[in-house]
């Protein structure tokens, strides 16, 4: 059951998006999200939606996986839409108590829901096509200008922490499963009882897990020291991130989409 938890959702495939530089992908994702929110009328938003769906097609990740992400966020989406429906000015169609349903409200709700949905799709496209490690590397690169404003080592340390955290998620899941099995073998009851019983039942699992996490942290720190780790200074990379023709393609694509949204915004 613990194996169902998704952390980094990388889906291996050989698409244009997989080959592209993660730094470019992050920048373009932010750009597109901004433009999705700039899209002010029906036509530009529809254009944005079509563009996002073509990006999903280009990613060569099964559409089912995107829908899975969407399903998780669906309650939030519906909630936002409903709030938007009743909120704000406009000619009421139906009203009861302090709520009034307006035509403007409904269109606002549809706009909002669609924007959030597109936002989720596009960020899923990033996480499905980029490994967690590439993502952290890219974030480190993108944030590296911060070292000129006094945060010399902070960016590297943050990125290292993220990498280590990601690296240890599967290890800890495996460990948790082992401890759970061991305690179950001693008759621990994890499945029944009230809320308090269930929380109490977690203690025999959490304590050994915490101890092993601390033990692993010590071991890792020692191993890193043995290899002369001293922070980011002077560190070189095994995998250099380089720009390629793929990045040119996806950048032009993103510029086209943004341009299209602006044009449709102004013209119609």
């Amino acid at each position: 059951m613990l194996k169902d938890i998704t952390f980094g959702q990388f889906y291996d495939s050989k698409s244009l998006l997989h080959k592209a530089d993660p730094r470019i992908k992050i920048v373009l994702m932010v750009l597109l999200i901004v433009f999705i929110f700039i899209a002010g009328n029906m036509y530009s938003l529809a254009f944005a939606a079509v563009s996002v769906f073509s990006i999903l097609l280009v990613s060569k990740v099964p559409f089912k996986l995107y829908l899975k992400n969407m399903k998780a966020i669906l309650p939030v989406l519906i909630f936002t839409a409903i709030i938007n429906m009743f909120y704000g000015e406009g000619e009421p169609i139906v009203s009861f108590w302090i709520f009034s349903l307006t035509l403007e409200g409904i269109s606002r709700a549809i706009f909002m829901a669609l924007r959030i949905a597109l936002l989720i799709f596009i960020s899923s496209a990033l996480t499905y096509t980029t490994t967690p490690n590439d993502l952290t590397d890219a974030i480190e690169h993108l944030l590296s200008p911060l070292k000129y404003v006094g945060l010399k080592n902070a960016v590297h340390i943050m990125a290292m922490m993220m990498t280590i955290a990601l690296r240890f998620i599967p290890t800890l899941i495996e460990e948790a499963e082992k401890v759970m099995n061991a305690q179950k073998a001693r008759g621990a009851d994890l499945e029944s009882g009230g809320l308090i019983d269930r929380v109490k039942a977690l203690i025999p699992i959490l304590i050994p897990l915490l101890l092993s996490a601390v033990r692993r942290a010590y071991e890792l720190a020692e191993a890193m020291e043995c290899r002369c780790y001293n922070g980011g200074e002077g560190k070189t990379r095994m995998k250099q991130m380089t720009l390629s023709v793929c990045d040119l393609w996806i950048s032009s694509g993103a510029v086209l989409i943004s341009g299209g949204i602006i044009v449709l915004n102004i013209l119609i």
Partner: peptide, 29 residues
């Protein structure tokens, strides 16, 4: 769970499953 008390299973490195404050409490679990 009744079966689990009749067929005991000692895992690899069982010392990593200790969690109680005293040895007594842990054996009594």
């Amino acid at each position: 769970r009744k079966v689990r008390s009749q067929v005991g299973l000692v895992f690899q490195y069982p010392e990593y499953q200790l969690f109680e404050e005293t040895v007594f409490a842990d054996i009594a679990f």
